[in-house]
Design a protein around this nucleic acid. Structure first.
Length: 581
RNA sequence: GGACCCAUAGCUCAACUGGAUAGAGUACUUGACUUCGAAUCAAGGGGUUGGGGGUUCGAAUCCUCCUGGGUCCGCCA
């Protein structure tokens, strides 16, 4: 299915043949032999670095190896031509037949084209968003949500079994603060004047929660001490917040498989169990940490704490798991949570943090490494901050001034598709400027429309053809031979489509869904280019009024383009367009 | 003081995880709609990849030291 893979196999076969013929020594490491599209199309369709990679261990001149390899490869049917270039590159020209066959493959496989066996059904847990359940999701969470969801979809496309998971931080003091704030709104709903002091959440979004609390318990909690109502209100409030958050995620098209409660770790001995596991590996001890140097800590005094020896797994300092008063630090439940993930037998874990949590990467990796004895692959991706702009001017967010931009604001204003695509046209660790006036006013600045437009144009051709009495039949299209698809601009598209499976693999391996977005942009660009060539060259128009067979072939070809665009957009969570408005 | 992320065309960003002459968009200049949707296309200029050193056939990519920016640094989560 993957033409690059196929050609690489041919290259490896011939290299083996050279070994057998004594032209190369045996026992060579071939893993870094690559077959790639060359940067410059003039160099051919594919290039291999085999000769250069092997020259050192084979103790032969790279060009000499390349010459021999080129001769051997000329006997392979799909390779039309091979030429040695530069320091020892072997440029390959693939026969036009192979490109035509790619189109058949795509139509045959449909949405399965590009799915690979890379993941081998390995179980991957992707944890993302995990915002505190104290309010609606804001713009920063949005990027993490989009990235995590697209990565999950990408991995599942690449053959992994993916679990999307949200860790609810409902065990700390912030949910008590939430409960107190809701209590104030509850009193307010009963007509009392209330003051939101420091340490409470004054946001309007809690007003309806106070209202519904009133509907639920009536006046029962008025003038009662905190211990009487706190636990119930806490649960009531976090439930309400999680409902809010789930709705926010739904608006963005994100659906979690699992919600894991931090609170559930307490009381059941889960934390103790995790710590015990570390203790059995001699990684827990009582000790005193040094004061951080250079940073002013005014009331610093050395204290004995229970520490995790994370330095033995790559961290810079050991980390406290208990406060000096004996209570757990936040890190302890985090360890227990990841212990739980390891126990749930995931083969790989991925955490997605905001950049402001970058400081926790090493200790979390140390924890998972220790807990799983390095058996579970663990990657942490950081999403950089999103800077909002309005017509080029930085847009300052302030809760007080009411200019706080939530996920919902963003989706309501620019839509889920635009939000997702724009956030994915950037590497996750690059800061993102998001101008939510510009992406709407000047749509050409926005790559999502460019890709959507390609998809809409293809649908437009289908509509036009139908009017002309040419009905496109998927079944029949599969038997198309594409022997008439020979023009350079058409083959260029086939070449691009052939890269898709390989691109999926690279993106999945590197955990970088943004590559999908850039690829779709390039594919759309090749398509638009071909479209416009039809303005000058009638033979390149998709609808050939006088030749229904030719029209049919071309429709089958652009239908293959649509297959890949739909798959790609599907990974990003964006709907392919049939019309532009 | 330390850790982590980053620095690429005027601007916003890519670059196949080490490959050939570093690419797109935008902006600027010019051209293409009686024709499948011009939200498109074609052409042009634009670079010491922040700086120095190193590793090798080969470096934007890996190592090291600087410079500049961001995030963070026990008893908050």
């Amino acid at each position: 299915m993957d033409l690059f893979y196929t050609v690489r196999q041919h290259v490896l076969n011939e290299l083996e043949g050279m070994v057998a013929a004594g032209e190369l020594p045996s026992g060579l490491d071939m893993t870094s032999v690559a077959v790639e599209p060359p940067r410059d199309p003039l160099h051919g369709d594919m290039a291999t670095n085999a000769a250069m990679v092997l020259s050192k261990s084979a103790k032969k001149n790279p060009r000499e190896i390349a010459e021999t390899l080129a001769n051997r490869l000329s006997n392979v049917d799909i390779i039309e031509n091979s030429q040695v270039a530069g320091p020892g590159f072997l440029n390959l020209r693939i026969s036009i037949k192979a490109w035509q066959l790619i189109l058949n493959t795509i139509l045959e496989l449909g949405s399965a084209y590009g799915r690979t066996g890379l993941g081998k059904n390995l179980r991957v847990n992707v944890e993302f968003v995990s915002a505190n359940p104290t309010g609606p999701l804001h713009v920063g969470h949005t990027r993490g949500a989009v990235f995590g969801d697209a990565l999950s979809e990408l991995l599942s496309f690449a053959g992994f079994k993916v679990t999307r998971e949200y860790y609810i931080n409902d065990g700390g003091s912030q949910v008590d603060t939430l409960a107190r704030s809701v209590y104030l709104r509850y009193l307010e709903a009963h007509g009392q004047d209330v003051a939101f002091e420091d340490g409470t959440y004054p946001g309007d979004y809690l007003i309806p929660v106070g209202q519904s609390l009133k509907e639920k318990v009536g006046s029962d909690y008025i003038d009662k001490p905190e211990h009487y109502w706190l636990e119930d209100v806490r649960k009531f409030s976090t439930d309400a917040m999680m409902k809010l958050i789930k709705d926010d995620l739904a608006a963005l098209g994100v659906k979690m498989d699992t919600f894991f409660s931090e609170k559930s770790l307490y009381g059941g001995g889960k934390i103790e169990e995790a710590i015990e596991s570390l203790k059995s590996k001699n990684l827990i001890y009582e000790g005193i940490l040094d004061s951080p140097k250079g940073k002013k800590v005014e009331d610093w005094e050395p204290r004995v704490q229970t520490l995790f020896k994370s330095t033995s797994h790559g961290d810079d300092v050991d980390r406290p798991i208990k406060k000096s008063d004996g209570a757990w630090t936040y890190f302890a439940p985090d360890i227990a949570y990841h212990f739980d993930k390891v126990e749930r037998n995931f083969d790989q874990l991925i955490d997605i943090f905001g950049a402001d949590h970058g400081g926790y990467v090493k200790r979390m990796k140390a924890a998972v490494s220790a807990l799983s004895d390095d058996k579970v692959k663990f990657d942490i991706k950081l999403t950089q901050l999103v800077k909002l702009f309005k017509r080029g001017e930085p847009f300052k967010m302030s809760k007080r001034a009411g200019t706080f931009v939530t996920l919902r604001d963003l989706v309501d204003q620019v839509g889920s598709d635009v939000t997702r695509f724009v956030m994915l046209t950037r590497k996750n660790d690059a800061p993102l400027d998001f101008d939510f006036e510009k992406v709407l006013e000047q749509s050409k600045d926005n790559p999502v429309y460019y890709v959507q437009y390609a998809s809409a144009r293809i649908h437009s051709v289908f509509r036009k053809a139908k009017q002309a009495g040419i009905h496109f039949d998927e079944e029949q299209a599969r038997s198309e031979t594409f022997s008439k698809i020979t023009h350079e601009a058409e083959i260029k598209i086939a070449r691009k489509l052939a890269e898709w499976p390989r691109l999926v693999e690279i993106s999945a391996k590197t955990h970088e869904p943004h590559r999908i977005a850039f690829y779709l942009y390039e594919l759309a660009s090749d398509f638009h280019s071909l479209w416009n060539k039809g303005n000058e060259n009638d033979a390149l128009r998709f609808i050939q009024e006088k030749d229904h067979n030719a029209t049919y072939t071309k429709m089958a070809m652009i239908s293959a383009v649509l297959v890949v665009i739909s798959s790609g957009l599907g990974i990003l969570g964006v709907e392919p367009a049939t019309h532009m408005n």
